[in-house]
Write a protein that binds this DNA or RNA. Structure first.
Length: 592
RNA sequence: CGGGGUGUAGCGCAGAGGGAAGCGCGCCGCGUUUGGGACGCGGAGGUCGGCGGUUCAAGUCCGCCCACCCCGACCA
């Protein structure tokens, strides 16, 4: 490709909308352009990189037995109604009507489409196991797209679906993906860790998320440097203190005027915050028989700890959870700021499992300006449920080895998920087993977003001048800068560059040739910005010294190579760069 | 959806006491220049986010709406 023909323009200044490096650089280097919030065009450079990323995914999924197909983006509402997600999912789902006024959905994932097709195609255990996948556009009307390609509304995802006759088969395919995903990320040269994650409301037994650790990430992870425990904060657990044998003291009401916060209360009573408890009010959408109802939940945690909403939602099997409003709290007779489960009826009380082990806590008295001291679980109140519902934090003890946990931020670049039979049972996707029994297909689903992956790679590999792309992902392998100028020497250099360009192309090297009538500074800067791994400069100066100048984007050194050896040198460099990536492909231990 | 911010040329920004719409970069033409974002001369490019109002007169004042960005809520 000639720079003079490339349909992309670099920008000298980065658009003011962009804040994080990957967004700024992808825009400045002409890889992407934004059409609307969370909706982007992939320009030719990005498209080449995305194609490479997608081909890596193809190769690795094919290697574990995947068969590529293509499922529709626009789908009849019916298949979503069958699994109930048409009703369960809110405005995040894109909905439209066709000309005959039929409800249609824009696919946000393809479990429904898969379930529908296997219902018709899979009849016998002899057809299993199967692994199918496609690379397809998804639409999710995220309430807050942000950070360039990191969080968008329209995106392309490689999603695979494993189909098995039993859980053992699923385990096998799940583990195959576990390693294949590491291989995919490592071939893109992106360091990731796998963390255990929430399985959500769709049933399922196990899920892992692949996380690229970066401060710009929006998930919070807890890691143990001692034993390697790692989990998304949504589900991370930790070792709580052991039960205290302190004797329960008599319940007592004390005046605590204007003490509506834990910090203020603790100071006022001159006690540490961990001797207090607090109530967090949530409105939960739960199923009561066939009906969905909103219920006020009293979640009680120690004053110095935070409620983990994911844990709470899982414990009470809530479909949705939101903070309660003051009026809703007052409606049950509780007093915000002084709330307490003591002496209240008719609310769902969930208590963190540390509370019963902690005697003589301070709690609200349900009366403006008063708290109880020496509140004891079991004696003074009971809960509907006792469970772990607090969030793990930096410094908490690892659940496995007791060492202090570390908190980091990460971007979820992929996930793998044991779905089980939730979908197949919902749609009746069954097969006949050897014994003639009808059984539901056991499913797994596995996704990687290609745009988010590209953005993460740029986050990891850039400097003040631009991107430094791994050779496996870069749109081109080699960038030729021609420094021509007027006069005989200039013409000579231009001709030499042209010749090298042709020679490399004919040898199958992916090369972009900067043949523009621009000053050298512009060309060098654009080469750096676009991030092509190998740069070759052809100019009067280099030719005088007997050749062309090689420079790797990730290194400072320049090397003069005779023109006739250029192709050999290019191939050496490519081989070296590829070998560096190859080294990253190692078996990763599976963490339950 | 709550809080904050921004909309003026392709990009970055000025103009705000109401009185002919500007600068830098980029773009087009001619010429000079060619190893780290060159220079000269000449040019093109704007319903000042939209609608309505006040006024002799609105980019500027008032009202409503829209879009985009950031924080939070949310995230199969």
């Amino acid at each position: 490709m000639r720079m003079s023909k490339l349909f992309s323009q670099t920008l000298r200044e980065s658009p003011s909308d962009a804040e994080i490096p990957s967004h700024q650089l992808l825009l400045r280097a002409g890889y992407i352009r934004q059409l609307a919030a969370g909706i982007f065009t992939a320009m030719p450079l990005a498209q080449r990189s995305l194609t490479k990323i997608e081909n890596i995914m193809r190769e690795e999924i094919n290697a574990i037995g995947g068969q590529e197909m293509a499922m529709p983006v626009v789908q009849p509402a019916e298949i979503w109604k069958r699994t109930g997600r048409w009703f369960k999912i809110g405005p995040e789902m894109g909905r439209l009507k066709d000309r005959n006024n039929r409800d249609m959905a824009l696919a946000m994932t393809h479990e429904e489409a898969v379930s529908d097709i296997i219902k018709n195609e899979i009849h016998s255990y002899r057809q299993l196991p199967v692994l199918i996948y496609h690379i397809q556009t998804k639409w999710r009307d995220d309430p807050r797209p942000r950070a360039g390609l990191i969080r968008v509304r329209e995106f392309t995802m490689k999603d695979s679906y494993s189909l098995d006759r039993d859980w053992a088969g699923l385990d096998e395919q799940y583990r195959a993906h576990y390693q294949a995903y590491f291989d995919i990320f490592h071939r893109c040269d992106l360091p990731v860790i796998a963390v255990k994650s929430d399985v959500g409301m769709m049933g399922g037994k196990m899920a892992h998320e692949y996380m690229y650790i970066t401060p710009v990430g929006e998930d919070t992870l807890l890691l143990c440097d001692g034993c390697g425990y790692s989990a998304n904060r949504q589900i991370a657990v930790f070792q709580k203190e052991t039960a205290s044998d302190e004797a329960p003291l008599p319940l007592e009401k004390v005046a605590t005027p204007h003490m509506k916060t834990i910090a203020g209360l603790a100071e006022f009573l001159d006690i540490p915050e961990h001797q207090t408890s607090k109530v967090v009010f949530m409105m939960a959408t739960v199923l009561e028989g066939e009906e969905e109802v909103e219920k006020l939940v009293f979640a009680i945690v120690r004053g110095d700890m935070d409620l983990n909403e994911t844990k709470l939602a899982n414990v009470i099997k809530a479909k949705a959870l939101r903070p309660a409003e003051e009026a809703e709290i007052e409606a049950v007779g509780a007093v915000p700021g002084y709330a307490s489960p003591v002496g209240l009826d008719g609310v769902l009380v969930v208590v963190d499992d540390l509370i019963p082990d902690t005697p003589n806590l301070v709690a609200g008295a349900n009366q403006e300006g008063y708290h109880f001291i020496n509140v004891n679980y079991g004696r003074d109140y009971e809960a509907d449920l006792v469970a772990d519902i607090v969030a793990a934090r930096e410094g908490d003890a690892c659940p496995v080895c007791d060492q202090a946990l570390r908190e980091v931020r990460g971007i979820e670049v992929g996930n793998i998920f044991k779905l089980g039979t939730w979908y197949s049972e919902a749609v009746g996707a069954t097969f006949q087993d050897e014994d003639g029994e009808e059984r539901p297909v056991v499913m797994g689903s596995y996704g990687i977003g290609s745009g988010r992956l590209l953005a993460s790679i740029v986050e990891e590999y850039h400097d003040e001048y631009g991107m430094i792309l791994p050779i496996s992902v870069a749109p081109y392998q080699v960038y030729i800068v021609a420094i021509s100028g007027r006069g005989e020497k200039g013409a000579e250099a231009q001709a030499a560059a042209e010749q090298l360009y042709t020679e490399l192309q004919e040898a199958g090297v992916e090369v972009i040739f900067d043949d523009r009538d621009e000053s050298p500074g512009v060309k060098f800067n654009d080469a750096d910005l676009i991030g092509i791994p190998i740069r070759i400069t052809v100019g009067p100066r280099s030719l005088d010294k007997g050749g062309v100048e090689f420079k790797r984007r990730d290194q400072k050194e320049r090397e003069l190579v005779p023109l006739e050896d250029a192709l050999t040198k290019v191939n050496e460099h490519i081989a070296t760069l590829e070998a560096e990536i190859e080294e990253r492909l190692v078996p990763m231990p599976f963490k339950e």
